[in-house]
């Protein structure tokens, strides 16, 4: 059968560390399916994306079909599958409070400086730049979430400093 053949040919992508971390969630929920989102977060934390092979392996761990995991994964648009996101993943807010204070201009400026479009990763893999919908930091507008860091009061200057700090300023 093609599927078995494919499975046996694929190198596992989940290591024991990831598997143990996922298993720790089992006791928290009455169903294994509820561990889907935590498992996706675990894999994304280590691999910066969740490739299809990881979906298959998560499904095995959770006693689900791969389609069930893929269905949930694809709903969120949060977990990249084709390639890892950058070493830093940053979201620049484009919702109303930030837009009123120049958020969209900052995002356009950053994209021009990093020579990428929203959603893309710089060629050197340092940064993935995305738009975000309301980041819940409207008092700091315009704002950005870069990894675990909330950056407020963004300006053209401060956003360039950020790009430089993560090695994402495009060269021309």
């Amino acid at each position: 059968m093609p599927s078995t053949e494919k499975k046996s040919n694929s190198t596992p992508v989940l290591n024991n560390e990831m598997r143990d971390e996922i298993r720790k969630y089992f006791a928290r929920y009455p169903t294994r399916q509820a561990v889907t989102l935590p498992a996706l977060h675990v894999v994304n934390k280590y691999l910066r994306h969740v490739p299809l092979q990881a979906v298959v392996e998560i499904a095995e761990l959770l006693e689900l079909s791969p389609a069930q995991v893929q269905d949930t994964l694809s709903f969120y648009g949060f977990f990249p599958q084709q390639a890892p996101h950058g070493e830093v993943r940053a979201w620049v807010c484009r919702s109303i409070s930030c837009a009123l204070r120049g958020g969209e201009e900052v995002l356009a400026h950053m994209c021009a400086k990093a020579k990428i479009q929203p959603g893309e990763t710089t060629a050197n893999g340092k940064l993935t730049l995305e738009f975000g919908e309301c980041l819940g930091a409207c008092e700091l507008a315009p704002c950005m979430l870069a990894g675990d860091q909330l950056v407020g009061h963004l300006t053209a200057e401060s956003s360039e400093e950020f790009l430089a700090s993560c090695g994402a300023l495009g060269t021309s």
Partner: peptide, 20 residues
């Protein structure tokens, strides 16, 4: 995982169950 609809209480419940 960054989806506004999860703030709707039954959307939250479905999300918590591991579904869309």
């Amino acid at each position: 995982a960054a989806a506004y609809i999860c703030g709707e209480e039954t959307g939250l419940i479905e999300s918590l169950e591991g579904k869309r």
